[in-house]
Design a protein around this nucleic acid. Structure first.
Length: 110
DNA sequence: ACATTGACTGCTA
DNA sequence: ATAGCAGCCAATG
């Protein structure tokens, strides 16, 4: 576990219920300019250990990146329970994208 | 220790 | 508008 990974985890934990964020966005917040894949991988490995809201992370188009047999339906259902609306399998990011402000990031002590 | 693999993204043609 | 590709780097075998 590296510092960057830990940071990514902390950021993911901050995503509020009913909102979503994207891989690239989180990576950028964690200091990775183009680390979307790392975010995905960290989610994969740490979601059970850290009890992360993994369902709130989607790709840059607002679509679920999982395959139909890889948890797609589970993620969609979890998000819908939180009040996230899907329009043809797509989340309108202009309404649901979490935009962290300084207050949110203070929880991650720098 | 080395090679491969991604729950991705943004730029280029 | 659509498609292809290089970059990112932690985890896994």
């Amino acid at each position: 576990m590296t510092d960057t990974s830990q940071l990514i985890i902390e950021i993911i934990k901050l995503i509020p219920k009913g909102k979503v964020s994207t891989y690239g966005r989180i990576g950028k917040l964690a200091g990775l300019q183009r680390g979307a894949r790392q975010v995905a991988r960290i989610l994969h490995t740490c979601t059970t250990k850290h009890n992360l809201p993994w369902q709130r992370v989607v790709n840059a188009k607002g679509m679920i990146s999982l395959s139909k047999n890889g948890g797609y339906h589970i993620q969609k259902e979890l998000l819908q329970k939180e009040g996230v609306k899907f329009i043809n399998e797509r989340i309108p990011l202009e309404n649901y994208l979490w935009e962290p402000d300084n207050n949110d990031l203070l929880d991650i002590d720098f």
